[in-house]
Design a protein around this nucleic acid. Structure first.
Length: 173
DNA sequence: AATTTGTGCAACCGCCACCTG
DNA sequence: GCAGGTGGCGGTTGCACAAAT
């Protein structure tokens, strides 16, 4: 919340924006002890000043132990394209076929990598054939479209706390 | 070195469907 | 049948960081 907003004084304070390490730990600990439940009451019981929706999203997209982030493989890349052709923007449906992947990640991946390149190739299509480059999805392109390792480490770098850290801390309790 | 522009991703928003009383 | 609460989904936004100028 960047601006000061008026809020009725009887309404509980609701935090927005990026999650802090403390909040993550509270949520992880609470779910580890009590399991997932009704998210609104979970948020209240855990003492988090977040909406149930926000907690659910954070858990599903980031904190779940089985969630896999980054490093989309060529195989997954192909599956995404295939399933998107079949179902369109049904991200959650697509995500269910890619274990550990979230709809949010696939949606972002599509928008930032695949869709962008399709747009680009559409632009190429308006050019004379002599200017036309490789079709977007060839074997050759698979490797170039899979995020480079350094790009991944870059994206993981600003997560100072990896999920492994959280879960290893969890095991200590 | 400073500034601008582009990119990737986490998180929010709004809508809809389902459930329960 | 209706209203309120909740979960799930897809679209969009805001921000941090990288790359380009």
């Amino acid at each position: 919340m960047t601006k000061m907003e008026k809020r009725p004084c009887n309404e509980p304070e609701v935090r927005k924006g990026p999650w802090t390490m403390e909040e993550d730990l509270i949520l992880i600990n609470y779910i580890a002890n009590h399991g997932e439940g009704v998210w609104n009451s979970l948020a209240r019981s855990a003492g988090l000043k977040r909406t149930g929706k926000s907690c659910r999203l954070r858990w599903l997209n980031y904190l779940r132990p089985d969630v896999r982030r980054g490093n989309i493989t060529a195989e997954e890349h192909l599956l995404i394209i295939e399933m998107h052709a079949k179902w369109g923007n049904r991200w959650s449906k697509i995500a269910k076929h890619l274990s550990g992947r979230t709809d949010n990640e696939i949606k972002n991946y599509w928008r930032t990598r695949i869709h962008k390149h399709i747009k680009q190739s559409e632009n190429f299509a308006t050019l004379p054939l002599s200017n036309f480059e490789e079709p977007v999805f060839t074997n050759q392109v698979h490797s170039s479209y899979v995020p480079a390792d350094n790009a991944l480490s870059q994206s993981n770098d600003h997560n100072i706390w990896g999920m492994e850290d959280f879960w290893s801390m969890q095991l200590l309790h």
